[in-house]
Amino acid sequence: MATGTYPAAQIFHKEVIYTKDMVHIVYTIRNQRVMLDRDLAVVFDTETRKINQQVKRNQGRFGEGYSFKLNSEEFQNLRELLRSQNVISKSWYLQ
Protein backbone atom coordinates (compact mmCIF):
# COMPACT_ATOMS: atom_id res chain seq x y z
CA MET A 1 0.00 0.00 0.00
CA ALA A 2 0.99 3.65 -0.17
CA THR A 3 3.72 4.93 2.08
CA GLY A 4 5.88 7.99 2.60
CA THR A 5 4.51 11.49 2.32
CA TYR A 6 1.45 10.47 0.37
CA PRO A 7 -1.44 12.13 2.32
CA ALA A 8 -3.80 9.15 2.40
CA ALA A 9 -1.07 6.90 3.75
CA GLN A 10 -0.42 9.30 6.62
CA ILE A 11 -4.10 9.74 7.43
CA PHE A 12 -5.33 6.18 7.31
CA HIS A 13 -2.63 4.40 9.23
CA LYS A 14 -4.25 5.85 12.35
CA GLU A 15 -6.87 4.13 14.45
CA VAL A 16 -9.15 7.19 14.45
CA ILE A 17 -9.69 9.23 11.30
CA TYR A 18 -10.60 12.87 11.83
CA THR A 19 -12.56 14.91 9.30
CA LYS A 20 -9.89 17.62 9.32
CA ASP A 21 -7.41 15.04 8.00
CA MET A 22 -9.66 14.19 5.05
CA VAL A 23 -9.36 17.67 3.56
CA HIS A 24 -5.95 16.75 2.13
CA ILE A 25 -7.34 14.00 -0.09
CA VAL A 26 -10.65 15.54 -1.16
CA TYR A 27 -10.52 17.54 -4.38
CA THR A 28 -13.10 19.68 -6.15
CA ILE A 29 -13.57 18.58 -9.74
CA ARG A 30 -16.59 19.52 -11.87
CA ASN A 31 -17.96 21.37 -8.85
CA GLN A 32 -18.11 18.11 -6.91
CA ARG A 33 -16.04 17.06 -3.93
CA VAL A 34 -14.29 13.84 -4.91
CA MET A 35 -11.65 11.38 -3.77
CA LEU A 36 -9.32 9.55 -6.10
CA ASP A 37 -9.65 5.80 -6.45
CA ARG A 38 -6.15 5.35 -5.06
CA ASP A 39 -7.11 7.26 -1.89
CA LEU A 40 -10.22 5.13 -1.45
CA ALA A 41 -8.06 2.04 -1.81
CA VAL A 42 -5.91 3.26 1.07
CA VAL A 43 -9.01 4.00 3.17
CA PHE A 44 -10.32 0.48 2.63
CA ASP A 45 -6.86 -1.13 2.76
CA THR A 46 -7.18 -2.69 -0.67
CA GLU A 47 -5.82 -2.28 -4.18
CA THR A 48 -6.98 0.48 -6.52
CA ARG A 49 -7.92 -2.06 -9.17
CA LYS A 50 -10.24 -3.81 -6.70
CA ILE A 51 -12.06 -0.54 -5.96
CA ASN A 52 -12.55 0.00 -9.69
CA GLN A 53 -13.70 -3.60 -10.22
CA GLN A 54 -16.34 -3.29 -7.51
CA VAL A 55 -17.66 -0.01 -8.87
CA LYS A 56 -17.88 -1.50 -12.37
CA ARG A 57 -19.53 -4.74 -11.19
CA ASN A 58 -22.00 -2.99 -8.88
CA GLN A 59 -23.01 0.13 -10.79
CA GLY A 60 -26.59 -0.19 -9.59
CA ARG A 61 -25.51 -0.01 -5.96
CA PHE A 62 -23.28 3.02 -6.48
CA GLY A 63 -25.69 5.00 -8.61
CA GLU A 64 -25.14 7.16 -11.65
CA GLY A 65 -22.57 9.87 -11.19
CA TYR A 66 -20.86 8.05 -8.31
CA SER A 67 -17.66 7.87 -10.30
CA PHE A 68 -16.27 9.42 -13.43
CA LYS A 69 -13.07 9.49 -15.42
CA LEU A 70 -11.12 12.70 -15.71
CA ASN A 71 -10.75 14.22 -19.14
CA SER A 72 -7.21 15.08 -20.25
CA GLU A 73 -7.43 18.71 -19.08
CA GLU A 74 -8.73 17.72 -15.63
CA PHE A 75 -6.04 15.05 -15.39
CA GLN A 76 -3.26 17.53 -16.20
CA ASN A 77 -4.65 20.09 -13.73
CA LEU A 78 -4.82 17.53 -10.93
CA ARG A 79 -1.36 16.25 -11.74
CA GLU A 80 0.08 19.78 -11.57
CA LEU A 81 -1.77 20.44 -8.30
CA LEU A 82 -0.33 17.31 -6.73
CA ARG A 83 3.15 18.17 -7.97
CA SER A 84 2.90 21.68 -6.53
CA GLN A 85 1.89 20.20 -3.18
CA ASN A 86 4.86 17.81 -3.36
CA VAL A 87 2.48 14.85 -3.26
CA ILE A 88 3.99 13.38 -6.43
CA SER A 89 7.37 13.82 -8.01
CA LYS A 90 7.87 14.78 -11.65
CA SER A 91 8.95 11.22 -12.43
CA TRP A 92 5.83 9.66 -10.89
CA TYR A 93 2.80 9.25 -13.10
CA LEU A 94 -0.81 9.50 -12.07
CA GLN A 95 -2.65 6.62 -13.66
Rank of each mutant, 00 (worst) to 15 (best):
N58V: 05
D37C: 08
T19F: 06
T46H: 05
T46V: 13
R57W: 15
F62E: 07
F75Q: 03
F44L: 10
S91D: 14
R61A: 12
E80R: 13
K50A: 11
I25T: 06
V23C: 05
N52R: 15
M35F: 04
N58C: 10
K56A: 14
D37F: 05
K56Y: 15
N52H: 12
Q53N: 13
K69E: 09
L70H: 02
N31E: 09
G63C: 04
I29N: 04
K69R: 14
I17E: 00
L40R: 15
Q76V: 07
N71Y: 02
E47N: 11
R57H: 14
Q53Y: 13
K69H: 10
E74P: 01
K20S: 00
N77C: 07
L81N: 07
V55P: 04
E64D: 10
Y27I: 01
A41S: 06
A41H: 05
K56E: 15
Y93P: 02
V43H: 14
Q59H: 14
I51D: 08
G65C: 07
S89A: 13
F44P: 10
F68N: 02
I17M: 00
N58H: 15
R61G: 08
S91C: 11
A41N: 12
G65F: 11
S67F: 15
V26C: 09
L36W: 06
I17Q: 00
R38V: 11
F68C: 05
Q59D: 10
V23F: 05
M35H: 10
E64Y: 14
D39T: 03
L81V: 05
Y18V: 00
D45S: 12
I29E: 01
K50G: 02
A41R: 09
H24P: 01
S89P: 03
N77Y: 06
W92T: 12
F68Q: 05
S67R: 14
G63V: 02
Q85T: 02
Q32L: 08
S72A: 07
L81T: 10
Y27H: 09
D45K: 15
Q59E: 13
L70N: 04
Q85N: 09
N52L: 15
I88N: 08
R30W: 03
M22W: 07
N31T: 02
N86I: 05
I25P: 03
V34N: 07
N31D: 07
G60C: 08
V87T: 10
V87R: 04
G60E: 13
N77S: 11
M35N: 14
W92G: 10
E80T: 10
N86K: 13
D45A: 11
N71T: 02
E64M: 10
R49D: 08
